[in-house]
C-alpha cells in the first residue's frame, strides 16, 4: 500500500545520569511531528539499545546524555548497531556535548549532534529531511 506509514524512531539514554526530562521532551516533539517513538528510559547499555533498535525496526536512534560519557558511549552504540546488522539506522545525539567533540563523534558514525539549546524544531526538521530519503 502506498500510504505513508509513520516512521519509527528509538530514543534512549545510555550512561548513568538519571535525568530524562530532556529526552521525553524530544519524544513528545517527534510524536507530535508524526513519528512513532519508542522510549527505552534511562541507564541503558549500548547492547540494550542495539537490541531494542533491532526488535523495533527503527529508522533512527537518538541518544541523550548529560553525564559527559558521550565520547565512549555514543560510538559504542554505533558499533553495537552495526554489529547487529543495522547498517542504515541513523544515529543522532544530544545533550551536553562540547563543540570540539562533534567532529570526532561524526567520524565515529553519529550523523548529527544537537547541543544544548537546539530548538526542537531543528531536530524534527533534520529527521524529516534525512529519514524520508533513507526510506
Amino acid at each position: 500500500m502506498v500510504r505513508g506509514e509513520p516512521i519509527r524512531v528509538l530514543i534512549a539514554k545510555p550512561g548513568l545520569d538519571g535525568h530524562d526530562r530532556g529526552a521525553k521532551v524530544i519524544v513528545r516533539a517527534l510524536r507530535d511531528a508524526g513519528y512513532e517513538v519508542i522510549y527505552t528510559g534511562i541507564r541503558q547499555t549500548p547492547e540494550m539499545i542495539a537490541a531494542a533498535a533491532l526488535q523495533e525496526d527503527v529508522a533512527a536512534v537518538g541518544l541523550s546524555l548529560l553525564s559527559g560519557a558521550h565520547m565512549t558511549l555514543f560510538p559504542e552504540v554505533v558499533k553495537r548497531l552495526r554489529k547487529a546488522g543495522l547498517k542504515d539506522v541513523l544515529v543522532f545525539g544530544g545533550g551536553i556535548i562540547p563543540e570540539e567533540d562533534v567532529s570526532a563523534l561524526k567520524k565515529a558514525g553519529v550523523r548529527a549532534v544537537f547541543g544544548p539549546g537546539t530548538p526542537l524544531q531543528s531536530i524534527v526538521e533534520y529527521l524529516n529531511e534525512n529519514l524520508k530519503v533513507a526510506r
Binding site: P6, V27, R28, L30, R31, D32, A33, G34, Y35, E36, V37, I38, Y39, T40, G41, Q44, T45, E47, M48, A51, A52, E56
Partner: peptide, 20 residues
C-alpha cells in the same frame, strides 16, 4: 495520536531487563 498520527511508545521502559 489522532492529530499527528505519531505515538509515544513507552512500555519498553519497564521491560528493558529482558532487552538482550
Amino acid at each position: 495520536s489522532s492529530v499527528s498520527g505519531g505515538a509515544f511508545l513507552g512500555d519498553r521502559l519497564r521491560v528493558m531487563e529482558h532487552a538482550t
